[in-house]
Amino acid sequence: MLDKILEVLATLRPEVDFTENHHLIDDGILDSFDIVTLVGELNDAFDIEIGVEDLLPENFNSPAAMLRLIERLQS
């Protein structure tokens, strides 16, 4: 599942090494423009609905954080 997240992120921002970055929001690597696209892509890729209550920077700061969010929404 992590590979799929990395794939989505790589499509969104091919120039970023997402395996090395763990403060994607805090450091401004992903901004709100990216989140608009990212939420849609993750919803489609994992058949989930990321809710407005999930829109917290800590849920998008790293691929691992996104994985935790997706696993929670799938359960």
Binding site: I25, S32, I35, G51, V52, L55, L56, P57
Partner: peptide, 25 residues
């Protein structure tokens, strides 16, 4: 109230169209 307003729209189905996702902070 902000989240309730959006949840109400989402509940209508078909996916959400938006030009921005606000962080709750």
């Amino acid at each position: 109230q902000f989240t309730a307003l959006i949840k109400e729209v989402r509940a209508k189905g078909g996916g959400l169209l938006t030009n921005w996702f606000f962080f709750l902070g």
